[in-house]
Simulated scan of single mutants.
Amino acid sequence: MKNIRFHKTQCGVELLLNVGTGHELQQINPGFNIHDSGVYTTDSFEIYFFKKASGSVVLNQRKIQVRDNTILFMSPFQKRQWKLEERDLDFTFLIFQEDFLNDFFADKLFTYRLLYFYQLDYPLDLPVTGAEMASICEKLTEIKSELVYPKVDSEHLVRSLLYYILLKLNRQYATQHHLPLEKPENNYAYQFKKLIEQHVREKQRINEYAALLGISRITLNKAVQAQFNVTATHLLKQRLVFEIKNYLIHAEFTVHEIAQTLHFSEPNHLMRFFKAQTGLTTSQFLADYQNGTIA
């Protein structure tokens, strides 16, 4: 499977960030084909702002209908496949690397605080009004201008505009899905989310993550419940199921191979876990997926 990496020189920019219109995307991202891209990943955060669109994208193993005034959110290494109609297609993309934010913000967990990134429970698209889309795209145009005609303070302006856009979208996403947006009392929930992304293949017990954080299981669960309104166990199991599905669909591993990779003691334990979480056997899930039923 192709993984497309962000290269500043290839993108024609000096920063780990780029903004452009649809016709520019294929120049910097050869994997993007509006008719049928094939499955690929990238190593960047990506947000797509569709002013006009018709078609779909398979993202996070789900088929998302792409319509007018739709915003799509993609996290690094998420597998996706585009099927869009070329007629009347009009969109803008925003691509950036986490290091771009980390170099500027003291908060190294910022991307994990954004509800639409690394999201498995709620949709990865956000419908907006035409006026809202126009307002966002106006700021994206400002960013593009600073990239094309850089000045001494351009980097600071770009980061400020990006920060504004990301937080504004986060507020809107939270409102759309009735998600909590209170200021966290601590960072444990976000640190846990980050650690899951880093260690899910070898650590599947809450106690292991609590130990990494240097806190009790009870403290971790309270922090996750307060911030995400679900238990720590739910987040971990949800992410593990997603990893199993990825291996079934994209790596074509056998259940035995997946069990070994994810450190299940026996393939039967993996199969029971998967059935308990999804209601399907691994074979049923794979058959449904191949028949076009996206779980």
Rank of each mutant, 00 (worst) to 15 (best):
L262H: 06
E266D: 11
K245W: 11
Q78K: 11
A232D: 02
S56M: 04
Q238H: 05
G292A: 12
L147M: 05
M271G: 03
T141K: 15
F77W: 11
H156F: 14
P150D: 02
H199A: 12
L16K: 14
T231I: 06
Y164C: 04
T254C: 05
V19D: 00
V230N: 03
F104I: 00
A189E: 10
N69W: 04
F192L: 03
Q260T: 09
I244Y: 06
L262E: 06
A174W: 08
Q260A: 09
V230A: 01
D125R: 02
R5Y: 15
A232H: 07
A211V: 09
W82I: 11
Q176N: 06
L157A: 10
I64M: 02
I4P: 09
P184H: 13
N291H: 14
T233V: 14
T233Q: 15
E266N: 10
K8Y: 08
G279I: 04
H250W: 10
S216K: 05
R67M: 09
D90A: 04
S160V: 00
K151H: 02
L162Y: 04
L286K: 08
E86D: 15
G55A: 03
A295H: 14
L25I: 09
S135V: 02
V241L: 05
F274D: 00
E14P: 01
V255G: 03
E142T: 08
E202R: 15
L89D: 05
Y48S: 07
L140Y: 01
N229G: 00
H156Y: 13
F6V: 00
N102M: 08
V255R: 13
N33V: 08
Y112T: 03
L94M: 10
G12C: 06
N268T: 13
D43K: 02
A259K: 05
F285P: 05
S75R: 05
K2D: 08
F192Q: 07
W82K: 12
